[in-house]
Design a protein around this nucleic acid. Structure first.
Length: 111
DNA sequence: AGGTTGACGTATT
DNA sequence: CAATACGCCAACC
């Protein structure tokens, strides 16, 4: 995989790195910010590549519902939840409690 | 070269 | 209001 050829992936990494501590965002929000709101799935694939990127906190990115859909992709079964809880985010049944409260919208924040 | 999958989201029934 | 269908676009088989 050559992220260097795909600016889209680079942009995703940049946005994810901009997520403040104790905050989370959604794939759609990032996709929208990048102008690819129609393909939130690509953000997920970008995260998959970001798996090698240590600077990209993929655990802070969840789906629109605040559900940790990709936690299974992490090393540990509940590693993603552990990381989020470590940042003060409460998670119950793989879902972020008061997701809207912790939600960080790049379109709104960085605009 | 073609078909399927997927860390999603929105629309429709 | 819940469940299902479909569209997106890249990667994988």
């Amino acid at each position: 995989m050559n992220p260097e050829n795909t600016n889209f992936f680079q942009k995703v990494y940049v946005v994810v790195r901009e997520i403040p501590y104790g905050r989370v965002t959604s794939y759609g929000a990032i996709a929208k910010y990048l102008g690819m709101a129609r393909s939130a799935r690509m953000v997920g694939w970008a995260m998959n590549s970001a798996h090698n990127m240590e600077d990209v906190p993929a655990h802070r990115v969840v789906n629109r519902k605040g559900l940790l859909t990709g936690k299974h992709h992490f090393d540990g079964t509940n590693l993603m939840q552990q990381l989020l809880e470590n940042e003060g985010i409460i998670i119950v049944d793989n879902q972020i409690v008061e997701f809207e409260k912790f939600f960080w919208d790049p379109w709104k924040e960085l605009q």
